[in-house]
Lab assay of single mutants.
Amino acid sequence: KHICAICGDRSSGKHYGVYSCEGCKGFFKRTVRKDLTYTCRDNKDCLIDKRQRNRCQYCRYQKCLAMGMKREAVQEE
């Protein structure tokens, strides 16, 4: 069993190059498709875990990228 590289929830498989849960997969897809931009209200180092993953979209998206999620993979779907 794999866990989500972004928030630690149960992974549903590899999405956009990274083991991730449905929540983070959908979040990344929406962000890329709609070309959304986020801002962090703190120091750009918010904790992203299962409980708090919805608290800061900026940091969640940065963690998706840092863990290796690929924007191109969304476009190719």
Rank of each mutant, 00 (worst) to 15 (best):
A73V: 09
R41H: 15
K29V: 15
K50T: 05
V32W: 03
S20H: 12
C24I: 00
T31Y: 05
C59T: 01
Q75L: 09
C21V: 00
E72G: 05
C46F: 02
T31L: 04
F28D: 01
Q75I: 10
C4T: 01
D45P: 06
H15L: 04
K50S: 05
L47Q: 05
R51S: 12
K29Y: 03
Y38E: 06
G23A: 06
R51A: 12
R33E: 14
T39G: 14
H15M: 03
G23C: 03
H15E: 06
C4H: 01
L36C: 15
R10N: 09
T39Y: 11
M67V: 10
R41C: 15
K44R: 09
R53Y: 12
L65D: 04
E76M: 08
D49E: 11
D49N: 14
A5I: 15
M67Q: 09
D45N: 08
E22N: 06
D35N: 04
R10V: 03
G23E: 08
C46L: 02
Q57S: 07
S20M: 09
K1A: 01
L47W: 11
S12W: 06
Y38W: 06
K70A: 10
D49P: 09
Y61C: 07
R30C: 02
R53G: 10
R33F: 08
Y16I: 10
L47F: 12
M69A: 06
E72S: 13
C24E: 01
N43M: 13
H2P: 02
M67R: 11
G8D: 08
L36R: 12
N43D: 03
F28E: 02
F28A: 02
Q75V: 12
D49C: 04
I3A: 03
V32N: 12
R53V: 12
Q75D: 13
D9F: 02
M67P: 01
Y58Q: 06
K70E: 06
I48A: 07
R53S: 06
R51K: 15
R33M: 11
C46D: 08
C46G: 03
E22T: 08
E76P: 07
H15Q: 10
R10M: 05
R51T: 13
Q75R: 11
D49V: 13
R53W: 11
A66P: 01
V18E: 12
R71T: 13
Y58S: 11
V18M: 04
E76Y: 10
E77Y: 13
K44T: 15
Y16E: 15
V18N: 01
E22C: 08
G13H: 13
G8H: 07
N43V: 12
I48P: 10
D42H: 01
K44Y: 04
K50P: 09
R10C: 07
L36E: 13
V74N: 06
R33C: 03
R30I: 02
G26A: 11
D42G: 15
R53Q: 09
Q75N: 07
K29M: 14
H15W: 06
T39I: 15
E77P: 11
G13E: 15
G23S: 02
R33W: 11
G26T: 06
C21Y: 01
Q57Y: 06
H2R: 05
L36D: 14
Y58D: 14
R30T: 04
M69G: 04
L47D: 06
R71Q: 11
K63N: 02
K29P: 01
L65M: 07
F28V: 02
M69Q: 04
V18W: 03
E77F: 15
K29Q: 07
Q57G: 13
M69P: 01
K29E: 13
S20Y: 09
T31R: 01
I6W: 01
Q75W: 04
Y38D: 05
N43Q: 05
S12C: 01
A5V: 07
G23H: 05
E77N: 15
Q75E: 15
K70S: 11
R71K: 14
C4G: 00
N43L: 10
H15K: 04
G13A: 13
N54D: 04
I6A: 04
Y19G: 03
N43K: 15
G23Y: 02
Y16D: 14
M69N: 01
D35V: 15
S20I: 13
K44I: 14
C59M: 00
M67A: 12
C7Q: 00
R53A: 10
V32Y: 06
Y19R: 05
L47C: 07
Q75Y: 05
H15F: 06
V74K: 15
V32K: 10
R53T: 15
C46P: 04
Y58M: 07
Q57M: 02
E22Y: 04
C7E: 01
C7P: 00
N54K: 02
R71A: 13
E22A: 07
K1F: 03
K29G: 13
C4D: 01
V74D: 08
F27L: 03
R41W: 10
C24D: 07
S20F: 10
A5Q: 13
S11F: 05
Y19Q: 07
Y38L: 12
R33L: 05
I48E: 04
E77V: 11
K44G: 14
E76H: 10
D9S: 04
A66Q: 08
Q75S: 11
Y38V: 11
N43Y: 08
I6D: 01
Y38H: 13
Y38M: 13
Y16N: 05
L36I: 13
I3M: 06
T37S: 09
R71M: 10
E72M: 06
S12M: 13
R71V: 13
V32L: 06
K14Y: 03
V18R: 03
A73G: 10
C21Q: 00
G17T: 13
C4N: 00
G26H: 09
G68L: 02
Y58I: 01
T37E: 14
S12Y: 03
K50V: 14
E72I: 14
Y19D: 08
A5N: 09
E76G: 14
Q57I: 03
I6C: 12
E22W: 10
T37V: 13
D45H: 06
T39W: 10
C7N: 01
M67F: 10
S20T: 15
C40M: 01
Y19E: 07
D45R: 11
E22S: 06
G17F: 05
L47H: 10
A5M: 14
G17K: 06
V74E: 09
R51F: 08
K14A: 09
Y19I: 05
R33K: 14
Y19H: 06
L36P: 06
Q57D: 14
E72V: 15
H15I: 03
Q57E: 08
D9R: 03
G8S: 08
K44F: 09
G23D: 14
K70C: 06
H2T: 09
R30Q: 04
M67L: 12
K70L: 12
I48R: 09
C21N: 01
T37H: 14
C46H: 05
Y61N: 15
K14M: 11
C46E: 03
R71I: 13
D49Y: 03
T37C: 15
E72F: 03
K14I: 05
T31A: 09
T39Q: 08
C24A: 00
E76N: 13
